[in-house]
Structures are given as structure tokens and as C-alpha cells.
């Protein structure tokens, strides 16, 4: 039972990271009409930023600020590139996928060549926090608990913004029917740029929570997470925000359970087998695609 609770906590924490990633990805897909495959890389480089600032100062506020700022800047910097290649009709998957993949590779290369000699970075113990609970080999750290709470709060706030505020309604309007959004006078490009900003904020928050959860970062982490992000969003149904919320959480819990009861090294294989089966049965995703 203790194992179950410990794994459930880390599962929900991991799941909420997936939810944040998938939601940012879906928002880009729906509002900016691009496949932002480099989004997890932006998150990882924000983690690196947090790590870098942690070498200089203990001020957690500054660390958080730096992480979020870098994520916002990178996200907004990518906007002019994507605007050039997106068509006004629908999503040009080919062009934006290639562009964002290139962006992801560049970020990865920068990290593997220039930061910490390309070795993975480990976050200091005061960032992760000590162990709260431990049952034999299984422990729950303070960082995991922060990630859990932070993840749930971030997801709740973000979905509240999307579904209960005017700005969220404008995003959903553009996502659903660009022509109708244009007719009611929503400034499409301005709103789209704002979505890059919001996704940047979301990426920064994700980076902070993720670093607390796993306590390290490596140049290859982004690509690894990107594959899962893409898989979750396809399994849930591309562009389906509520579907992404559900499937992201389930994947996190599933992985944590596999790690606790079977073997850590098999958790990815199990997750992808389950997703493969789902996609075979429901090619449009569990909740239906929205693009």
C-alpha cells in the first residue's frame, strides 16, 4: 500500500508535467497553427537556466524568474520563423514540423556542446528538498510533492484561464473557427503572438516543476519528453485540450506504477505499447482530434 501511495504521488506529479507540456503543445497547434516539437527543448533549456542561476545564487525567486524569462524569450523568438511558414488555411504540418525539429536539434546541440561539457546537470539538494517519506527503496522527496502541488495548481489555473476568461475564449475561438474569429474582429496575429507568450510562461513553470521532480536535466531529455508529448497528444486526439489533460495524467500514473511494480527500465516500453494499442483501435485519438 505504501508503494502504491508513493507511486501515485510521483505518478500524478509526472502526469501533471505531461499535461502542462501537452497543453502548451496543443495551444500552439490550435491557435498558432504549428506543430511545436521544440517546446520540450525550450522547457529543458529553462531547466538548464535554473541550474545555472542556482550556481550563482540561492535566491529561489530569482531562479524561477530566470527560468520563466528564458522560456518566454525563446518561445516568442520562434514566432517570426513560424509565421513565415504557416499558411492561413489549416495547419501546415510538414513545414512547421521540420522547422521545430530543427529548432529542437539546435537547442540540444547547444546544450550538449557548451553547457557543463555536455554532461547531465544535477540540481542541488536544497532545490529538490530532502526526503519526506521513505519505504525501503521507495522515497517521496519534497521536490516531488512541490511538483505535484505546483503541477495541479498550474493545470487548474491554466484551464480556468482557457475556459472561464475572455482571453481564453479568444484562443478557443481562433482554435475552433479562424474565419469566424476573424469576422467578430479578433486580431488573429496579435492573439497568436500572445499565445506564444502564454506558452512560454507555461514552459517556464513546467521547467521549474520538472527540475524539482526529477532533480536533473540532460541534453537528451527534451527529445525524450517530446516523443511522449507527441504520443499523448495523438492518443488523446490532436488539439483536444481536455483529452490531453486526462491522457497526460494517466500516462504519468501508468509509468510510475510500472516503475514501482514491474521495473523502471520497462516503464517507457509499457507506456508506448499501451499507446500503440489505443491508436490502432482509435486512430483519431480517445477523445477525437480537433484540427
Amino acid at each position: 500500500m505504501e508503494i502504491f501511495i508513493a507511486q501515485l504521488i510521483s505518478g500524478i506529479a509526472l502526469g501533471s508535467i505531461y499535461v502542462l507540456l501537452v497543453t502548451g503543445f496543443n495551444l500552439m497547434l490550435l491557435v498558432a497553427k504549428i506543430i511545436q516539437f521544440a517546446y520540450p527543448q525550450i522547457v529543458v533549456i529553462s531547466m538548464y537556466t535554473c541550474w545555472g542561476v542556482l550556481q550563482l545564487t540561492d535566491n529561489k525567486f530569482l531562479v524561477i524568474l530566470a527560468g520563466i524569462t528564458v522560456s518566454i524569450i525563446l518561445s516568442i523568438l520562434s514566432e517570426p520563423i513560424f509565421r513565415k511558414i504557416t499558411s492561413t488555411q489549416g495547419v501546415d504540418i510538414n513545414a512547421s514540423f521540420i522547422a521545430s525539429m530543427g529548432m529542437a536539434m539546435i537547442i540540444m546541440d547547444v546544450m550538449s556542446h557548451s553547457i557543463n561539457y555536455g554532461f547531465p546537470v544535477a540540481f542541488p539538494p536544497e532545490w529538490i528538498g530532502g526526503n519526506l517519506l521513505s519505504f525501503g527503496l521507495i522515497t517521496v522527496s519534497k521536490g516531488q510533492l512541490y511538483a505535484l502541488m505546483g503541477g495541479i495548481i498550474a493545470v487548474l489555473i491554466f484551464f480556468y484561464l482557457l475556459y472561464r476568461t475572455n482571453q481564453g475564449r479568444f484562443f478557443r475561438a481562433i482554435a475552433e473557427n479562424r474565419y469566424a474569429a476573424c469576422l467578430v474582429g479578433i486580431p488573429i496575429i496579435k492573439t497568436s503572438i500572445f499565445s506564444y507568450f502564454i506558452v512560454g510562461v507555461l514552459g517556464g513553470i513546467t521547467a521549474i516543476l520538472f527540475s524539482m521532480l526529477i532533480g536533473s536535466a540532460s541534453p537528451w531529455l527534451g527529445e525524450f519528453v517530446a516523443l511522449k508529448m507527441l504520443a499523448v497528444s495523438i492518443v488523446a486526439g490532436l488539439g483536444n485540450l481536455k483529452g490531453g489533460l486526462f491522457c497526460g495524467l494517466i500516462l504519468g500514473i501508468l509509468e510510475a506504477m510500472a516503475m514501482g511494480y514491474i521495473s523502471g527500465s520497462w516503464s517507457n516500453a509499457i507506456a508506448f505499447v499501451v499507446m500503440l494499442v489505443i491508436v490502432l483501435i482509435k486512430p483519431q485519438g480517445l477523445f477525437g482530434s480537433r484540427i
Binding site: R169, E176, N177, Y179, A180, L183, G185
Partner: peptide, 13 residues
């Protein structure tokens, strides 16, 4: 304002 042809609305809202 334009009321477009083919009743263009936000159908999931």
C-alpha cells in the same frame, strides 16, 4: 460587420 453565408458559428461553444 459581415453575417457570412452558411451560418458560420463557434459550434462547440
Amino acid at each position: 460587420c459581415l453575417i457570412p453565408e452558411g451560418h458560420i458559428i463557434f459550434s462547440s461553444m
